[in-house]
Simulated scan of single mutants.
Amino acid sequence: MALLLILHRVADYEAWRKVYDSVSDMPVFGGIRRESVHRMVGDPNNVLVLHYFDSVDEARAFTTLPELKEAMQRAGVQGEPRFELYE
């Protein structure tokens, strides 16, 4: 099992969440086994997403998907997201 931690700032959490929910069923994102979304206390537009995959290779490949980059842009992600991988 691999954990992908994604940390990023968004322009508006509610707008971001709508896009996040709309793409979660896309087949290209099918490698995600479990997920959770968290907002920083006192800074609700600072978002932490945890995605679990069967392998580090699957998680790493997910971070390079053009569909992910496009969804993040549509959702109002500001700056570069921070990706961290854990086993």
Rank of each mutant, 00 (worst) to 15 (best):
L50H: 01
V49K: 06
L48C: 03
P27D: 15
M40R: 15
L3C: 06
S22K: 06
L7H: 15
V56F: 13
F53R: 03
H8I: 07
D21W: 10
V49P: 02
M1W: 09
D43E: 08
E80L: 10
R17W: 15
Y13T: 02
Y86K: 06
H38D: 05
L4S: 02
V41W: 07
R39A: 05
A2I: 09
G42A: 03
P81N: 00
I32L: 11
V19A: 05
G79M: 04
A61K: 04
V19S: 01
D54L: 13
M1Q: 08
E70M: 00
H51Q: 11
P44D: 08
A15F: 09
A59T: 02
R9L: 11
D57R: 10
V56C: 05
A59M: 01
E14V: 05
S36H: 06
Q78H: 06
L85P: 03
R74I: 01
I6G: 10
P44C: 05
E35L: 12
E80S: 10
H38S: 09
L85C: 08
L48M: 04
P66S: 10
D54K: 11
V77S: 01
Y20I: 01
D21Q: 10
V28G: 03
E84R: 15
L3M: 14
Y20D: 03
K69M: 13
R74L: 08
F53M: 07
E67R: 01
Y86C: 07
T63H: 14
W16P: 04
E87N: 15
A59Q: 11
E35P: 12
Q78F: 03
E58R: 13
R33S: 13
L5I: 14
L4E: 04
D54R: 10
N45A: 01
F62E: 05
M1Y: 11
R74A: 12
G79D: 03
Y52Q: 14
D54C: 07
V41P: 05
K18Y: 09
W16L: 10
S24F: 15
G76R: 01
P81A: 01
S24Q: 15
H38Q: 11
S36Y: 07
V10G: 04
V19W: 02
E80P: 09
L3P: 04
R9S: 09
R17T: 03
V47A: 00
A15K: 11
L4C: 07
V23K: 01
L50A: 01
E35S: 15
E87P: 08
G30E: 11
E67I: 00
P44K: 02
Y20M: 08
P66N: 03
E84D: 13
S22F: 03
R34P: 09
S22D: 03
R60C: 05
R33I: 15
G30N: 04
V19F: 05
D12G: 01
Q73D: 11
H51C: 13
P44N: 10
P81Q: 00
S36G: 12
F62W: 06
S55F: 06
A2Y: 12
E58K: 02
Y13N: 00
E84V: 15
V56N: 03
Y86T: 03
M40Q: 15
R34L: 07
S24Y: 11
